[in-house]
């Protein structure tokens, strides 16, 4: 641990940006939770950008966890040398996602209650439970790493994280895939999309946030491979939706969604951080698109109130929750980098 952190370390442009995000997003989150409703939602369109933020950050954290677990199991030194940094990233992103989710649920305590009154038939219960276990496993690994205790527990913990993280990502897809009345959601495809998008965004996040030559090479290779797979899956979905005759299906996939991943595939080696960032934006676009589109067709009596098909544009308060989630993740990653890393990153 590093206790030689001075006030100067916080007077940087990055910290100013993070602080601005925390203040603006935090104020909006608190307002939504305690004072009044400001999100662009209604009784037929209930999961909007704040939930997208949670899923985006939780899946990105899952991707980082999966890649770290893979590195530990395969004893890939390019990854294992950065164990602590990757653990901090995964924890920071997951807690950023939980923060966005708390504004969506209205209370932090609601996230605890989910564990106390379980319904095993509910994918959301499994998602909450798996991510809680994932967070505990990540925290245990971080504490063991900080104490320098490596040994017999490393491999079982890595396998545990791998299995829990993969199950959690698949379960997020199942939250949507098990909805029977909405054709844009229903089916196993979204579980595949969430698992692969976790890997794509996790690998891209590592390339973006840990620009080290060997790690960038390894994470960049995983990013390119998974981006190719993701682009292929999107292409399949575009073809399916083009030929679909399912009543009530709007279709969330677009051929343009392939562009960020093809760009990243071809050009990543020239500007890794830029194309990793573009890849992350591409994943956010896909996740946003399927989560929102699935709810746009009004069901039953809600069509009378909101029209047969709704339109949705995120409003400023919702955009600020996205900023809040990212700012919390960034703050925790930055704090971890400053306090918990032996080799401190330069102040930026």
């Amino acid at each position: 641990m590093n206790f030689n952190v001075s006030r100067k370390d916080f007077l940087t442009p990055t910290w100013f940006l993070i602080a601005a995000g925390l203040v603006a997003g935090g104020a909006m989150g608190l307002y939504e939770m305690f004072l009044g409703h400001v999100f662009a939602t209604n009784s037929a369109l209930v999961w909007t950008l704040p939930l997208v933020t949670y899923i985006f950050l939780a899946l990105m954290s899952t991707g980082v966890s999966l890649i770290l677990a893979y590195g530990l199991i395969m004893k890939d030194e390019a990854i294992t040398r950065h164990t602590r940094a990757l653990l901090i990233m995964a924890i920071g992103m997951l807690l950023g996602g939980f923060t966005a989710l708390a504004t969506e649920l209205g209370s932090l305590l609601n996230m605890v209650w989910i564990l106390l009154s379980p319904n095993p038939s509910s994918p959301i219960w499994w998602m909450g439970t798996l991510y809680s276990i994932e967070l505990v496993l990540l925290a245990v690994k971080l504490v063991l790493d900080l104490k320098g205790r490596h040994g017999v527990f490393d491999l079982p913990l890595a396998w545990g994280t791998l299995l829990i993280a993969a199950a959690a990502a698949i379960t997020i897809g199942a939250v949507f895939g098990t909805v029977i009345g909405r054709p844009d959601y229903q089916g196993a495809f979204l579980s595949v999309i969430t698992l692969v998008s976790a890997l794509v965004s996790g690998a891209a996040a590592i390339v973006l946030l840990r620009p080290q030559s060997t790690l960038t090479d390894t994470a960049g290779r995983i990013f390119r491979q998974t981006a190719l797979l993701f682009a292929g899956l999107l292409l399949v979905r575009v073809a399916y939706e083009a030929h679909s005759t399912v009543v009530g299906m709007l279709g969330w996939a677009s051929i343009w969604m392939l562009v960020p991943f093809i760009l990243a595939l071809v050009l990543l080696q020239y500007a890794p951080r830029i194309f990793a960032f573009i890849g992350i934006l591409g994943v956010l676009w896909v996740q946003y698109s399927f989560i929102i589109t699935g709810q746009l067709v009004s069901l039953g009596q809600t069509a009378h109130w909101y029209g047969a098909v709704q339109s949705y544009q995120p409003n400023i308060p919702e955009a600020l929750i996205l900023v809040l989630g990212i700012a919390v993740a960034a703050a925790l990653i930055k704090l971890g980098g400053q306090f918990l890393m032996d080799e401190r990153p330069p102040a930026t």
Binding site: H37, W47, L105, N110, I114, V179
Partner: peptide, 23 residues
Amino acid sequence: NKCIGCKACIVSCPYGVISFNWE
């Protein structure tokens, strides 16, 4: 008392008959 406001019921209900108290 047990409702955590996740709105999974609203999304899952194929009849659109569940409402959420945002305020």
